[in-house]
Design a binder for these strands. Structure first.
Lengths: 146, 146
DNA sequence: GTTACTGCAAAGATTTTGCACCTAT
DNA sequence: ATAGGTGCAAAATCTTTGCAGTAAC
């Protein structure tokens, strides 16, 4: 069991909930990669590894993972959303390729700082944010030129 | 007819399409306010003013308005999206209140600049972006304290 | 033996689409 | 006539939920 899954187990038990086989498999699947997975991808991967967790359980467990703070749900626009684990991952934003769908990350601490100032000016208390830049990734840019 | 609607008419005609009554009413409705409207709100407002434009036509016309560049579609996260007209409106980002749903705008040119740099570094060609900050607006913050 | 969890399928919410009918040139 | 537009209802997507059965303590 991955260390992150252990942390999730602790979270679940502290909440007085049960750490079931299904919850464990969903967690292990999410923690197994740094890719951005959507719920349907998690479900598909689980099926392929023999887990019988249902769609409903996947969605419910992903919510719990987000609640635990170990996983972040990112809104990719156009109704797409994805999950990624946060362990050892500083906050970052996303470059979303509108051609191939690939999601890259980028970091810019100054942007974060400027956002805080903007909130202060507006009397707004931020809880989270989402910054996506849509366009052509380096690979797709080349593909078109060729 | 509002000047923005006239511009839209020009766009439609230049494309060799027809400027129909329905397209006109949708445009007038969108240009009638600076609020952020979602498709369903536009439809409701149209019904209340006696227009018989259908849901399908509203969606199709909103797409055309976006294509014309006179209206921007903004993704508010959680599957919500809204439309706002861009005329005389510099680019801005959004503060989305997760309590009352209100959407405020803010502007921060330096953030735009930093985004451009991030794209350059990644070899990414940006087409658009979306920055939402989620949290409590000033009004809802007070309401809780009270 | 409770209490909580799961799977299933139905229900929601939002947006798109196929098709027959209608409407401007 | 003919191309394009519209309304309707069905379909498509993604996610949530009610409920009966199942499993963990």
């Amino acid at each position: 069991m991955r260390p992150e899954t252990q942390q999730f187990m602790k979270f679940i038990e502290t909440k007085g909930l049960l750490f079931t086989t299904e919850r464990k498999s969903v967690a292990e699947e999410v923690f197994s990669t740094h890719d951005h997975l959507d719920a349907e991808e998690v479900l598909k991967k689980l099926k392929s590894t023999g887990s019988k967790a249902s769609r409903a359980t996947v969605y419910r467990t992903l919510d719990l993972l987000v609640e635990s703070g170990l996983v972040e749900k990112i809104d990719l626009g156009e109704g797409r959303s994805a999950y990624e684990h946060t362990a050892g991952h500083p906050h970052h934003d996303h470059l979303v390729c509108t051609v191939c769908g690939e999601v890259q990350e980028f970091e810019e601490p100054l942007i974060e700082q400027l956002q805080e100032w903007a909130c202060e000016k507006a009397g707004f208390r931020a809880i989270g944010h989402s910054l996506n830049i849509y366009g052509w990734c380096a690979k797709c840019k080349l593909a078109v030129k060729a």
